[in-house]
């Protein structure tokens, strides 16, 4: 068994926390919740209950206030996902230029269904709603940096997957 990693931000991340909380007026530190959840997800991979409780303690708010927010927004992962989550836009304008084809190509190439993780733990994919890049469709993004890949084709998807695999 792997030891459970202690849920605590690095000194650097804690500095960032202070910096973020200082953006809001006295007593309005709850405003930092969304930015801190992004920070926590980048640091710990996903928003487990422990992670959310930790964020609540940093902001001095009730854990339930964090749960209800984390579950409302689509960007917070409430369960572990692949190292690379390929999020393909599946909204109208992108579908006019072939987004659905890209989703089925990913399903075929990765051998998993939407939302599942490949056995090596590297990839999962999902369809997401309009990413404000409709003129460059089909598009996908990969967190936590949210790098964009535009005008996707079967070849460029192939290339991207190989490139990501080789990084590991």
């Amino acid at each position: 068994m792997l030891a459970v990693k202690e849920i605590k931000f690095s000194a650097e991340a804690l500095k960032k926390v202070d910096e973020i909380v200082a953006r809001y007026p006295e007593g309005r530190q709850k405003s930092a919740l969304l930015p801190l959840l992004h920070l926590a997800q980048a640091e710990f991979g996903w928003c487990s209950t422990e992670v959310m409780d930790y964020v609540a303690s940093l902001l001095n708010i009730n854990p339930i206030e964090v749960y209800e927010v984390a579950s409302f927004y689509t960007m917070y992962h409430l369960k572990p996902s692949g190292k690379y989550v390929l999020e393909v836009c599946r909204t109208g304008p992108c579908c006019l230029v072939g987004a659905e084809k890209i989703l089925s190509i990913l399903e075929r190439k990765l051998g998993v269904k939407e939302g599942e993780v490949t056995p090596d733990g590297l990839f999962s994919f999902k369809g997401v709603e309009c990413l404000a890049a409709c003129g460059y469709g089909p598009v996908l993004q990969i967190g936590p940096e949210y790098t964009f890949y535009e005008n996707l084709t079967e070849e460029s998807v192939d290339e991207l997957l190989t490139q990501l695999k080789n990084k590991n």
């Binding site: 953006r23 405003s31 930092a32 919740l33 969304l34 927010v69 409302f72 689509t74 960007m75």
Partner: peptide, 29 residues
Amino acid sequence: LEIYVQPGGGAYICGEETALLESLEGKRG
């Protein structure tokens, strides 16, 4: 004047101005 950038969490409804303000206060949109 100070200007700060606030990230959303992924929700179309937060484009509606009062949902946006809720979200900026750290709540559901």
